[in-house]
């Protein structure tokens, strides 16, 4: 059973404007070089649908660790091997967001390098989610979307501002 359409590169080239129109409507087209065995497949898909898939499927799971001596907070995202810290929860969240933006920039610039690293190759969809955001406040909100305490910290900060 083949529910997805696959086309050769040569057919895709000939029909590209139409394929782009169809992709924008939601039809995914998969293309590959049929003449080369083991050639990677590439999906042409609506960016809107792609980002919906990422937003629904790749939520962040931040973990808050309050320092044993009360000197501050560390917030980590274990699935991305990344953390931020600060004397307050909102400072730690902002630091984490800065680190995440920096990591996303580096990762997407050197994606071929990071995709070869076993414990980092699965980071792509999370960082692609970050890449579409336009400022650090949006990044903080995305990190906090599944964490009530962090949402509260953002809300309290907004009231102060």
């Amino acid at each position: 059973m083949y529910l997805l359409e696959e086309k050769s590169i040569s057919i895709t080239k000939q029909d590209f404007p139409n394929i782009v129109r169809q992709a924008a409507k939601g039809h995914e087209v998969i293309t590959s070089n049929f003449k080369t065995s083991g050639s990677s497949k590439v999906s042409i898909i609506s960016t809107e649908i792609f980002e919906e898939v990422l937003d629904r499927g790749y939520k962040f799971n931040p973990i808050i660790d309050e320092d044993a001596d009360g000197n501050g907070f560390t917030i980590s995202i274990d699935e991305l091997l990344i953390h931020g810290e600060g004397s307050t929860l909102i400072d730690a969240l902002q630091d984490l967001a800065e680190n995440l933006i920096d990591y996303a920039q580096d990762y997407l610039t050197r994606v071929d390098f990071y995709r070869q690293i076993e414990n980092r190759k699965h980071h792509y969809p999370y960082l692609r989610r970050i890449a579409k955001l336009t400022d650090i406040n949006q990044v903080m909100e995305v990190i906090a979307e599944c964490h009530t305490s962090l949402q509260q910290a953002i809300s309290n900060q907004s009231l102060k501002d």
């Binding site: 320092d67 907070f73 560390t74 274990d78 931020g84 810290e85 630091d95």
Partner: peptide, 23 residues
């Protein structure tokens, strides 16, 4: 890993040290 350089003698937060060890 990520290191906040507050000065060489400054203690690292306990949660940060755990993350740095893992990273």
């Amino acid at each position: 890993t990520y290191i906040h350089d507050h000065g060489d003698g400054v203690p690292i937060l306990s949660g940060t040290a755990k993350q740095q060890a893992k990273q």
